[in-house]
């Protein structure tokens, strides 16, 4: 009788899958960097006194928050080339990865704008006032006093955002990206769908380990940057 489930398959497929983590990391990493920059601009817009900028930034965040990743992926993948066609630019030979990065940059920026905004607001105004009172210029006050404190506040949320981005990134295979999930589906297809479960479990293990590593890394960062803060007991 044919074996429905072969546990050794799980361990055997991991070495085949791991090389494709490179793609996953490259795409996720680019999205994080670009998304943080864009998110910073959005946060600045939300905190500015120009009502229009505020409204636009908030509208953007709401739209991103209400759109499933897979829908955004397809919208970007089909929609952007279609728009470009109207202007006469041919985008059909662009790497799938670019579309993936664009999609997740847009998404991550929305998350980061909230993380940055709330971290900034968490710092009491008195810190800024004291800084300028001892003679720092506003820029120096932000750089040396506000930013370091805001960073510590933002760190846990940034870590969570990163982990969430990694998970959402698993959907990139749907537009054809051959990252670790894409490769897994290729293997399954070539096996005529046999042993699919084992490969999915292998994927789950890889992602799980990655997430735990990121969690521990950020916990370490929080400890390092949080000098001077009373440590809270973790339940």
């Amino acid at each position: 009788m044919e074996k429905y489930f072969d546990a050794s398959y799980i361990w055997n497929s991991i070495p085949v899958l791991l090389p494709f983590l490179k793609v996953t990391f490259l795409v996720a990493g680019s999205s994080i960097v670009l998304g943080t920059i864009f998110g910073l601009l959005l946060a600045a817009a939300k905190l500015s006194s120009v009502k229009l900028l505020q409204k636009l930034a908030n509208l953007y965040t709401t739209i991103m928050r209400c759109t499933p990743s897979i829908v955004l992926l397809f919208l970007v993948y089909y929609g952007v080339p279609a728009l470009a066609e109207n202007v006469g630019i041919n985008l059909h030979s662009i790497e799938t990865a670019i579309f993936v990065v664009v999609t997740f940059t847009l998404q991550f920026a929305a998350i980061m704008s909230e993380v940055i905004r709330s971290a900034y607001l968490a710092i009491p105004k008195g810190q800024f006032e004291a800084a300028v009172s001892v003679g720092l210029t506003p820029i120096q006050a932000y750089r040396r006093i506000i930013f370091p404190q805001a960073l510590v506040v933002a760190l846990p949320n940034f870590g969570n955002g990163m982990i969430a981005l990694l998970q959402e990134g698993a959907l990139a295979y749907t537009i054809g990206l051959i990252d670790i999930v894409g490769k897994a589906n290729l293997i399954i297809a070539s096996n005529i769908n046999a042993h699919a479960l084992e490969i999915y479990i292998a994927l789950a293990i890889v992602y799980w380990v990655l997430s735990i590593i990121i969690e521990k890394f950020f916990a370490m960062l929080e400890k390092f940057f949080g000098k001077g803060k009373k440590t809270l007991e973790t339940t």
Binding site: L166, E168, G169, L203, A204, L210
Partner: peptide, 8 residues
């Protein structure tokens, strides 16, 4: 929290 929901 550590695995993508599509994989779940």
């Amino acid at each position: 929290r550590g695995t993508p929901i599509i994989i779940q």
